[in-house]
Simulated assay, not measured.
Amino acid sequence: QVRVSYDGRNGQPYVPLGRLLVQDGELPADGVSMDSIRNWLEAHPDRMMSVMERNPNYVFFRRDDGNLAQGPKGAFGMPLTAGRSVAVDRSVVPFAMPLWVETKLPYGAGQPVSWDHLVFAQDIGTDIKGAGRADLFTGWGATAQSVAGNLHAHGRMVLFLPRPPADSAAQ
């Protein structure tokens, strides 16, 4: 195994492959997941590159000699914690802010399971725009990959703001 870390992007807009495959009639709108996209690409090697090239957005990575047992480093330069770190739009949510998240996660082949947890804004996402948007770091390994690749649930997110200091002149 080789550990890699985010190293930049080309600044072009992101075009989701799942959306393209739905528009082309290749996948049903309610059947888009990481697995269905990967399966389609593997089943159509002759068309794979032409579909992928319709997304002009490229992300670049660099080799990272950090500890493979730790999560990737977030915007603070510290390892992210599976199930507790989220990437946010920094113009809306300040770094390190605690957030309460209520959603459903797709564990296994069954129905999505309620997931209500305290998380922290420890990373940014260039394609995460606006309030109420976040990317949950689910970890690494097969289970985390499956959960992240099949997560489509909406939910509720509450930002915990510190109480402003008391006005000493009013006392």
Rank of each mutant, 00 (worst) to 15 (best):
D46Y: 08
L27M: 05
P28E: 15
E26R: 15
L105Q: 06
A69T: 00
M48E: 11
S33E: 12
T81F: 01
E26H: 14
D89Q: 04
T81C: 01
L68H: 04
N67W: 00
W100S: 14
L21R: 07
G66Q: 03
F61M: 11
L80N: 01
S91H: 11
S36V: 09
P94Y: 06
N67L: 06
A43Q: 03
W100G: 11
V22E: 12
Q23E: 15
A69R: 02
L105W: 07
M52D: 05
S50T: 14
G108T: 10
S33D: 14
M52S: 09
E26V: 11
Y107P: 09
V93S: 03
R38M: 13
S33T: 15
V92E: 14
R84A: 06
R47K: 09
D24V: 10
F76Q: 13
R54V: 07
A69N: 14
V86T: 03
A29L: 14
S85V: 03
G74Y: 09
P106G: 06
V92W: 11
M97A: 09
L99Y: 03
L99V: 04
V22H: 07
Q23Y: 05
A82E: 02
D89P: 01
R84W: 00
M48S: 12
P98I: 05
P106H: 05
E26A: 14
N39Y: 06
E42N: 10
A69W: 00
I37P: 10
G108S: 11
P56C: 08
E102W: 01
R63E: 10
Q70S: 05
V32Q: 02
L68T: 00
V88W: 04
P45H: 02
L41P: 13
G66R: 00
G71M: 06
G77E: 04
V101R: 00
V32T: 02
G108M: 10
L105K: 02
R38G: 12
R84L: 02
V93D: 02
G83V: 00
P94A: 08
G25M: 14
N55A: 06
V22G: 10
N67T: 00
L68P: 04
N39F: 05
A87V: 01
L27F: 08
G66M: 01
E102L: 04
V93T: 07
P45C: 04
P79C: 15
G83Y: 00
A75N: 03
V59A: 04
P98V: 06
D89I: 05
V32I: 02
D24S: 15
V93F: 05
G108W: 13
R63N: 04
S85T: 05
W40Q: 09
R38T: 15
D24E: 14
F95T: 00
D24R: 15
P79E: 15
Y107V: 15
E42T: 09
P45D: 01
W40S: 08
M48Q: 12
P106T: 03
P94N: 04
D30H: 10
D64W: 00
G77K: 03
F60L: 12
F76C: 10
